[in-house]
């Protein structure tokens, strides 16, 4: 049950250790990573802003909801802020569960919910401009065209 908003690089091993427990048969690890393109544009880097105290509160609420909904054993959710280069991890979610099924389902639900609820924002910085992105990207499917955003 560890949540954190930080401007430091995310530590995967710490997030795994945080959810390890003897009754777990699965630990699922998700990393959201900065991609070099979005909607056909080349992205130079991203800048993340957050409301850290509320973000951590909402992350905790979602984690507790995942425990109730899916019966997972434990979770850790880290989100990074500040300037992130291509390939760096912005979001890290680890989940432990008795069997693999719950952790996969809970992971998918949790990441989607984080992107919809947690007060964090990304700004795309291109060679020739920048823009704050408003609203979660299309969730787990092909990107929507710009006209639908």
């Amino acid at each position: 049950m560890l949540v954190r908003v930080t401007d430091l690089p995310l530590d995967v091993n710490e997030a795994i250790s945080a959810v390890e427990t003897p009754s777990a048969g699965a630990v699922n690890v998700f990393l959201g990573v900065v991609r070099d393109n979005n909607l056909g544009r080349r992205v130079g880097h991203l800048v993340y802003d957050a409301y850290p105290s509320m973000a951590e509160r909402v992350m905790r609420e979602l984690g507790e909801e995942a425990i109730e909904k899916f019966g997972i054993l434990d979770y850790a959710i880290f989100h990074r802020t500040g300037k992130l280069a291509i390939g760096e991890a912005s979001l890290l979610v680890t989940i432990s569960s008795g069997h693999r099924g719950e952790s996969f389902e809970a992971g998918h639900w949790l990441v989607n919910s984080i992107k919809k609820r947690v007060p964090v924002w990304k700004k795309e910085v291109w060679e020739d401009g920048e823009e704050w992105i408003e609203g979660p990207e299309s969730l787990g499917i092909q990107q929507a065209p710009a006209s639908m955003r």
Partner: peptide, 10 residues
């Protein structure tokens, strides 16, 4: 009171 534009974390 926090004014929160559509979130885009992850």
């Amino acid at each position: 009171v926090a004014l929160i534009p559509p979130v885009s974390g992850g």
